[in-house]
Simulated scan of single mutants.
Amino acid sequence: MSDLFVKICGLRTERAVDAAVEAGADAVGFVFAASPRTVDAETARRLALRVPEHVLTVGVFRGQPVDEVRRLTEESGIRAVQLHGDEGPEYYTALRAPGRTLIRATAATEVPVRCGELDEDMLLLDAPDPGSGKPWNWASPGFTAPDGRWLLAGGLHPDNVRRAVEATGAWGVDVSSGVESERGVKSEQLIRAFVAAARK
């Protein structure tokens, strides 16, 4: 079994959180940006309390004011912040805190990016239309894998995740729509299948 880092994102229910943890996910994500998967701080806090210490709890934000990001992070008690917009280095400086992991999510392009350029701890490369479930061409000859701790996302599901990891050499993977039975509704069976397939 590989030591690939696996994040299951867009969780909204106790059963989905429990399924992700029991399947062996390394991180679970709660979406605070506008999405069919959005949760409020109270819900995220309740769900995060179910998560053991060794599993990272992540809040996903997109284009929100830094004060709002900080407030929701503190109110929910999550341990990592994922910024999924055009946030500049000032966001990462303002949100840096002891014990907090910062994740920069960006659309994959043929222009190489480097983990740590904005003082983030992890880099997430996503499809141009994040959250859509549409894959991007991660097998393109023009794709250059970043150095360091980076996660592959965008259109992944149990049937293609292992192939994607082998093609890109990703340090980790992130999935949301690829483990849903319908938009915004997680499938416990697909969560288990995704984690198992990713770590074959």
Score class of each variant (00 low, 15 high):
residue 74 E to V: 15
residue 74 E to W: 12
residue 75 E to F: 08
residue 76 S to G: 05
residue 76 S to E: 11
residue 77 G to T: 04
residue 79 R to V: 03
residue 79 R to S: 15
residue 80 A to P: 05
residue 80 A to C: 10
residue 80 A to M: 13
residue 82 Q to K: 10
residue 83 L to R: 01
residue 83 L to G: 12
residue 84 H to M: 09
residue 84 H to L: 06
residue 85 G to W: 00
residue 86 D to L: 05
residue 87 E to M: 11
residue 87 E to K: 00
residue 88 G to N: 12
residue 88 G to R: 14
residue 89 P to E: 13
residue 89 P to C: 03
residue 90 E to R: 13
residue 91 Y to W: 11
residue 91 Y to H: 13
residue 91 Y to V: 03
residue 92 Y to L: 14
residue 92 Y to V: 06
residue 93 T to G: 05
residue 94 A to D: 08
residue 95 L to R: 06
residue 98 P to Q: 02
residue 98 P to F: 05
residue 98 P to G: 00
residue 99 G to D: 05
residue 99 G to T: 11
residue 101 T to D: 04
residue 101 T to I: 15
residue 103 I to C: 02
residue 104 R to I: 12
residue 105 A to F: 13
residue 105 A to H: 02
residue 106 T to A: 15
residue 106 T to G: 08
residue 107 A to R: 13
residue 107 A to C: 11
residue 108 A to Y: 04
residue 111 V to W: 10
residue 112 P to W: 03
residue 112 P to L: 07
residue 113 V to M: 09
residue 113 V to G: 04
residue 113 V to T: 12
residue 113 V to C: 07
residue 114 R to V: 15
residue 115 C to A: 12
residue 116 G to L: 02
residue 119 D to N: 14
residue 121 D to L: 00
residue 122 M to S: 01
residue 123 L to F: 01
residue 123 L to M: 06
residue 123 L to P: 02
residue 124 L to N: 04
residue 124 L to Q: 06
residue 129 D to G: 01
residue 130 P to V: 00
residue 130 P to H: 05
residue 130 P to N: 03
residue 131 G to I: 02
residue 132 S to Y: 09
residue 132 S to W: 07
residue 133 G to R: 02
residue 133 G to A: 06
residue 134 K to L: 12
residue 134 K to S: 14
residue 134 K to P: 06
residue 135 P to W: 04
residue 135 P to V: 00
residue 135 P to I: 02
residue 136 W to I: 14
residue 137 N to P: 09
residue 141 P to I: 01
residue 141 P to D: 07
residue 141 P to M: 04
residue 141 P to W: 09
residue 142 G to D: 15
residue 143 F to N: 13
residue 143 F to G: 09
residue 143 F to S: 11
residue 145 A to M: 10
residue 146 P to V: 00
residue 146 P to M: 02
residue 147 D to L: 01
residue 147 D to R: 10
residue 148 G to H: 07
residue 149 R to L: 13
residue 150 W to T: 00
residue 151 L to R: 03
residue 152 L to V: 10
residue 153 A to P: 14
residue 154 G to C: 06
residue 154 G to T: 06
residue 155 G to H: 04
residue 155 G to L: 04
residue 156 L to C: 14
residue 157 H to E: 11
residue 157 H to P: 09
residue 157 H to D: 15
residue 158 P to G: 14
residue 159 D to F: 10
residue 159 D to L: 08
residue 160 N to Q: 08
residue 160 N to I: 10
residue 160 N to G: 12
residue 161 V to Q: 11
residue 164 A to I: 07
residue 165 V to E: 12
residue 166 E to C: 04
residue 167 A to C: 11
residue 168 T to G: 10
residue 169 G to E: 05
residue 169 G to T: 00
residue 169 G to N: 09
residue 170 A to P: 07
residue 171 W to K: 06
residue 171 W to M: 03
residue 171 W to C: 08
residue 172 G to R: 07
